[in-house]
């Protein structure tokens, strides 16, 4: 290989997010005829998961993988580029906003100026479906049921659940499963049916609630060290950019198959019951999000600017998508009955 990169993600080896970087590396190697090789390692191999972007900026890692939710400590706007509800924009719509609605420019500004990593090239990749509400002991039937529930979630959703009255317990990643097993926390959310199955959440809890506005999806990021990026010839740069787009589409397609299979397996083999989140609870989630987002927007101009850009884009894009997409439950009811 003419170029070889070390890439570390912020995810566990079995996570779909991590696998997406492995798949990206395969695509790039194939497209470049082996001229650019990327060695992909999971979170913690060289640096802690939360420090990936910092390490890429320093050049310890040639490239990295993570998402904006990992950056909320550095500046809360990170979540707006990852999983926040974005005025109803799902991940694919968010990708559209980033590429064609000014989001990419804002994200570049966020990374290089707001959080001060000027030696990093960033790319958006692999939009995911909405994340389930989570695993519960008893179904949530009304907003009142959330009051006092011991719940575990990361990032800005912590603030949202607190706003809704949950007792959010911060438990380190390595303690989530034992804490659930023993009841230190009552309920938790992780990422997707497949990821939740792999982590073993369906072994511990049987009530799986969805959908949810807590995290309407997720968009991943590829970070590349500026010097490593600049030394690539133009054709390899183009290959990396287009491989990221190809993997984004491929991720979504794979994701649908894998998660559909995972959910079916959990329902049929493991006795998991999927419970639909009541509409009132979802409305309350959006109300709580609004409080949290407005609080940050008032304190921070950049945050407010990103929200404004999203609101304008979502007004048309979500407007189109909501009106043009036939409701899926009508089809589901028809074909499941037959």
């Amino acid at each position: 290989a003419d170029y070889s990169w070390t890439l570390q993600t912020g995810y566990a080896a079995g996570d779909e997010q991590h696998q997406s970087y492995v798949a990206l590396a395969e695509k790039i190697e194939a497209m470049s005829g082996g001229r650019l090789e990327i060695d992909v390692s999971p979170g913690g191999t060289f640096v802690p998961a939360f420090e990936v972007i910092d390490a890429v900026n320093d050049g310890i890692l040639d490239a990295g993988g993570g998402d904006g939710d990992y950056l909320v400590g550095r500046h809360p706007a990170g979540s707006l580029f990852a999983s926040s509800p974005g005025f109803g924009m799902d991940s694919i719509t968010l990708m559209s906003w980033m590429r064609y609605g000014g989001g990419d420019e804002l994200f570049d500004e966020y990374v290089s100026e707001v959080i001060g990593f000027s030696d990093v090239q960033v790319f958006a990749m692999s939009p995911a479906l909405a994340q389930p509400f989570g695993w519960f002991e008893e179904p949530i039937e009304s907003v009142a049921d959330i009051e006092g529930i011991k719940f575990r979630t990361p990032g800005l959703p912590v603030d949202v659940m607190e706003e809704m009255g949950a007792a959010v317990v911060t438990v380190p990643g390595s303690e989530v499963v034992p804490a659930l097993e023993r009841g230190v926390i009552e309920s938790a959310e992780y990422f997707s049916p497949k990821a939740d199955l792999t982590l073993g959440l369906s072994d511990i809890r049987k009530i799986y609630m969805m959908p949810s506005y807590l995290q309407i999806g997720l968009v991943l990021n590829v970070y590349v060290n500026e010097a490593k990026w600049q030394e690539l010839p133009e054709d390899l740069k183009a290959i990396v950019e287009h491989a990221i787009m190809a993997e984004s589409a491929d991720f979504y397609w794979r994701y649908l198959r894998d998660n559909a299979e995972a959910l079916a397996y959990m329902e049929e083999e493991q006795g998991v019951t999927v419970v639909r989140t009541p509409d009132d609870v979802m409305r309350a989630q959006l109300d709580a999000w609004e409080v949290v987002l407005n609080r940050h927007a008032e304190e921070d101009e950049f945050f407010a600017g990103v929200l404004e850009s999203q609101r304008a884009y979502a007004d048309q894009a979500v407007g189109l998508k909501a009106r043009i997409t036939p409701p899926l439950n009508i089809a589901l009811e028809k074909y499941r009955e037959e």
């Binding site: 400590g73 001060g116 990032g155 912590v158 607190e162 959010v168 911060t170």
Partner: peptide, 13 residues
């Protein structure tokens, strides 16, 4: 860097 960018812990509320 943490001082200049006002970095906060993102692990808890």
């Amino acid at each position: 860097h943490a001082f200049v960018t006002g970095e906060r812990s993102g692990l808890s509320p």
